[in-house]
Write a protein that binds this DNA or RNA. Structure first.
Length: 938
RNA sequence: GCCGAAGUGGCGGAACUGGUAGACGCGCUGGACUCAAAAUCCAGUGGUGGCAACACCGUGUGGGUUCGAGUCCCACCUUCGGUACCA
């Protein structure tokens, strides 16, 4: 019988579904293992060949663990709220729910094609009210808690109120954004609104003013990547930074724990480094500078208190609240002009553009508390409002950016550290001797920092402080397609939590998804929904994408529970995710938020572990090749790529993307449009019907430009796995994606090599059939050679699966199949273990062969993974490479048990050695038993 | 700019702890089968020189450590991911 994946895969897909082979119970005597894939966003383009890379790896690992006796939870669902569906709705009027469900249906069908072992009875989607009921519920918990630093965990806001009533806020150590102190009496005299304002600054979910990218023309807030060079990517309208009252989550309260607990996780060092740098813990000093002729003080944070004698100016963030109050009348015009400029700059422009130095003097002076010097106060875009205190003391002698600023604006530079003993040292190295620094003169930098910190605290002008780069996460979106906040406002604008019994608060129906006027979310249009009796009204913002994805892994444990986000029984059985596979693009977003939510729930005693993802494996992206052609607008003519290459300028040319289906030799350097390809392009883009196509010497080949990049609908380069599966089968597709290379490495998609994997599968299949195509298997005892091939394969595959090196597993299977073919092996004792060994990789073929071998149930439910027996690999001799001066010159066999001394002696006698040693002396013999021999000659 | 990663034949990649660089596969070349082609099978395949044995060169670039470096250290170049409202 020929290998026919189409028939086999159809048959077993139905069988698995009919028998619930992959359904997992929350009650089992087996050890648990939880394998999680990252939550996909069901985009309109469907699944492309890049998505399944991680899914295939996790599926192989899940099946492997199951065959090794674990109860494996391996679920899948959808991060179904998001911008693209809403944008599509605005453009077409199709309700986001409808397009989302259609996309999900397509994703599901595509995934089913690939033979994944998901327990679909646990499927979740974040836009389902039954799911977001619990997202809202967790949000309310965050709203009703504050972080108590003394207790080291989240506590109910009610206990905070009790303390305020007793003692005011002076003794309360809590993460907060409130900077005044009050007594118990003062608290009691506050109005409800005033009390609420205070509490808001303590809550873990709270409201504050933050800056957003506001596009007046589109009437909406834009994401950073929707903004290019100060204008909206769509339409090219001006975008400005605009302050807006928004919900935030106080993730900074957990900064220390998020940092420290990284240690216990089995994540790559790179991933831990990214998170740790993102949290950005630093130790330094909070200090206050007096302002000349004013009662105001400027609060700064510095890690280099020792450099204060070199502080020759101050820089405030342009948004700093003191700017409007301190600007002198003479400087007002210059400041206003500068503020107008900063408004047009994105945050990323502001910090990454280090070459252009901009700023404005506000006409005020601060006083250096140590030498009484008058130092001018400036504003500049390189100081951010949300980092530190939004103000710095500038030390141009020792900071690159401050120095450039001083040079540009002619400000004083005072050298304060003598680094002559340390050539090449930077400020980061904290090396050198203090000079021009009063009482610190002569001290080493590290000692000076300590001396200064003590002095600051003695003088009462500041204190030691730990600071984090991590910022609180903005949690409001002015969008329709997200979770509504379960918050209602009383007529005096106090935010109240809805009763948990009234959850879920469902999204209202809307016809038009465009934003309402004045930066109000589209929900503002649903007046019946927003306005409540007695002048109360609902929050109209919705939650961001990371809301639903910050806890979904918990829902899978008990996905249909209506009483809780998951039962305690389920949570205590599954505990945490043992293996999480996903891309590094989530390093500081999703993976940080999830850890934060999980820790909060842990504080509440609602989950049994303090970290959600024990082990993390990063998956690289499969990239596409973006094909485009050069169009000269004025000439209305396309130019072949090699013509453009030889031109001195590309001015006047636009790059028009081409659908990859039209391109010949797609992805190669010589990709081109044939005359037919040009015809296809013209009928696809009729606006270019009349355009000419210029090629060199009238050649038939119109060359295109190829560049590696993301696979995306908008680049017309999406490759659909369905087509590949239809041609080669899912088993082949799975093994080919694994065979492409290491799981964590990015690589461009290329179909060329797939025939090699297909041939391998046919060869493997062929081991079980005779010349006439009938199934044949022998119960004879296998030979020593056959057993050796088998156990070499078992050893390699188990070792490599355990270290997530799936590409080398596929090679190992190929090697084994080639060898067994050569040996003409037909023995059950060899081939049956081979079927089990390959079952996680090629589940369909393994199932078919398993049944041919006479078994009744599914191999994936009843099989046991083969065990490696080292005795089959024992060798009598080892082949040693013999190197002369480190270069391999020959090989020689020695008995396995030869001692180091024997080897050293024998080595010098070898012919190769004699040949190379001719006329020279042997200086040294290096022998690593079992490894190699090196002879040093000189 | 900052943080993180990667760079090995014509191509995807292997080499796990510093120990025979190029496993496995694609492609290519030659051969078998065939009237012919496809498919399949066999052999070869890093570069240069040589009939050959063999020699020299070779893991992004430049330096270093070592008996020995793709692997460790320093500097640099290129590409990719993230950079707080894409998910």
């Amino acid at each position: 019988m020929d290998y026919s994946p189409r028939d086999i895969e159809q048959k077993w897909k139905q069988y698995w579904e009919g028998k619930d082979v992959y359904k997992v119970s929350n009650h089992s005597d087996k050890p648990k293992y939880y394998v999680l894939d990252m939550f996909p966003y069901p985009s309109g383009a469907g699944l492309h060949v890049g998505h399944p890379l991680g899914y295939i790896a996790s599926d192989i690992y899940s099946r492997y663990k199951r065959l090794r006796g674990f109860n494996v939870l391996h679920p899948m669902g959808y991060d179904a709220f998001g911008l693209p569906a809403e944008q599509y709705a605005i453009e077409t009027g199709v309700h986001p729910a409808r397009s989302t469900f259609e996309n999900i249906a397509r994703f599901r069908k595509q995934m089913d094609n690939l033979g994944f072992s998901y327990d679909w009875s646990r499927e979740v989607m974040t836009c389902d009210p039954a799911y977001y009921k619990w997202t809202q519920w967790i949000f309310l918990q965050l709203f009703q808690h504050y972080y108590d630093k003394a207790a080291g965990k989240a506590m109910p806001i009610t206990s905070l109120v009790a303390r305020f009533e007793q003692e005011g806020n002076a003794g309360v150590q809590a993460a907060n954004s409130y900077n005044r102190s009050f007594s118990a009496e003062a608290w009691q005299q506050m109005t409800a609104k005033e009390k609420d304002d205070v509490l808001m600054d303590y809550r873990l979910a709270y409201r504050r003013v933050t800056y957003v990218n506001w596009c007046e023309a589109l009437g909406t807030v834009l994401a950073n990547d929707e903004v290019k060079d100060g204008v909206s990517e769509r339409g090219g309208f001006p975008v400005e930074r605009k302050p807006m009252m928004q919900w935030s989550l106080r993730i900074t309260a957990y900064a220390e724990r998020l940092l420290n607990d990284l240690q216990e996780l089995e994540w790559s060092d790179a991933m831990k480094a990214m998170q740790s740098n993102w949290i950005g813990r630093s130790e330094g000093a909070q200090m206050f500078f007096d302002i000349e002729g004013s009662n105001e003080k400027i609060e700064i944070y510095t890690t280099r208190a020792d450099t204060i004698f070199g502080a020759t100016f101050m820089v405030l963030a342009p948004e700093h609240e003191l700017v409007s109050r301190m600007t002198s009348p003479e400087q007002q015009a210059a400041v206003d002009e500068y503020l107008a400029y900063v408004k047009t700059r994105s945050e990323r422009d502001r910090v990454s553009d280090v070459k252009a130095v901009t700023g404005a003097f506000i006409g005020a002076y601060a006083i250096n508390p140590f030498n009484g010097a008058k130092i001018p106060v400036w504003i500049s875009e390189y100081v951010l409002k949300d980092y530190g205190t939004g103000a710095i003391m500038a030390v141009p002698a020792d900071d690159e950016r401050d120095r450039r600023f001083a040079e540009k604006f002619g400000l004083e530079i005072i050298e304060i550290i003598d680094k002559s003993m340390h050539p090449g040292a930077t400020i980061e190295d904290k090396l050198g001797i203090m000079i021009n620094s009063g009482f610190m003169n002569g001290l080493e930098v590290l000692d000076a920092i300590e001396a200064m910190l003590q002095r600051i605290e003695e003088m009462g002008i500041g204190k030691r402080q730990v600071n984090y780069k991590l910022r609180d996460a903005i949690y409001s979106r002015q969008r329709y397609w997200g979770e509504p906040f379960p918050i209602i406002y009383s007529p005096d604008s106090v935010a109240h939590a809805m009763s948990p019994d009234d959850l879920p608060l469902e999204l209202p129906e809307l016809e038009d998804f465009k934003p309402a006027s004045g930066g109000v979310s589209p929900l503002g249009r649903a007046t019946d929904w927003v306005n409540l009796p007695g002048g109360w009204r609902r929050e109209t913002d919705t939650m961001p994408g990371f809301a639903g994805s910050s806890w979904y892994f918990l829902r899978y444990m008990d996905a249909r529970n209506d009483e809780a986000f998951a039962s305690q029984q389920a949570l205590n059985y599954w505990r945490d995710v043992d293996l999480y596979i996903g891309g590094t693009e989530h390093a500081v977003g999703h993976l940080m938020y999830s850890r934060f939510w999980h820790k909060f729930l842990f504080d509440k005693g609602l989950v049994p572990t303090n970290e959600p993802f024990r082990k993390l494996i990063n998956q690289g992206m499969i990239q596409g090749v973006i094909e485009s052609i050069y169009y000269h607008k004025a000439e209305r003519r396309f130019y072949s790529a090699e013509l453009v290459k030889s031109m001195s300028t590309r001015d006047g040319f636009a790059e028009i993307p081409v659908h990859i289906d039209f391109v010949s030799e797609y992805g190669s350097e010589d990709s081109y449009l044939s005359p037919e390809g040009i015809q296809q392009f013209k009928s696809w883009r009729p606006e270019y019907q009349e355009a000419e196509f210029a090629t060199a010497d009238g050649s038939d080949k119109f060359y295109t430009r190829s560049e590696v990049g993301k696979m995306s609908k908008s680049k017309f380069n999406v490759i659909n796995p369905d087509d590949v599966v239809a041609q080669y089968g899912a088993d082949c597709f799975r093994m080919y994606e694994m065979f492409l290379g290491p799981i964590d490495q990015a690589k461009p998609w290329d179909i060329k090599g797939i025939s090699g994997v297909y041939n391998f599968l046919r060869r493997f299949w062929g081991l079980f059939f005779d010349d006439k195509g009938s199934f044949r298997i022998s119960d004879e005892a296998p030979s020593k050679d056959e057993l050796k091939v088998l156990h070499q394969a078992i050893k390699k595959v188990i070792e490599d699966v355990e270290r997530f090196s799936f590409n080398t597993c596929v090679s190992a299977f190929m090697v084994a199949a080639n060898e067994l073919k050569k040996l003409n092996c037909t023995k059950r004792q060899v081939l049956e273990p081979m079927v089990l060994l390959i079952a996680p990789f090629a589940p369909f073929m393994a199932e078919e062969l398993w049944h041919n071998l006479g078994h009744e149930g599914s191999i994936h439910a009843e099989g046991h993974y083969p065990e490696f027996k080292p005795e089959y690999l024992k060798e009598d001799s080892v082949q040693y490479p013999v190197a002369i001066n480190g270069k391999t010159r020959g090989t020689v066999d020695f008995p396995t048990d030869a001692s180091k001394e024997d080897l050293e002696k024998a080595a010098t006698e070898l012919d190769v050695v004699k040949k190379w040693a001719d006329g020279k002396s042997i200086r040294k013999v290096i022998v690593v038993p079992g490894r190699m021999i090196n002879i040093v000659i000189g």
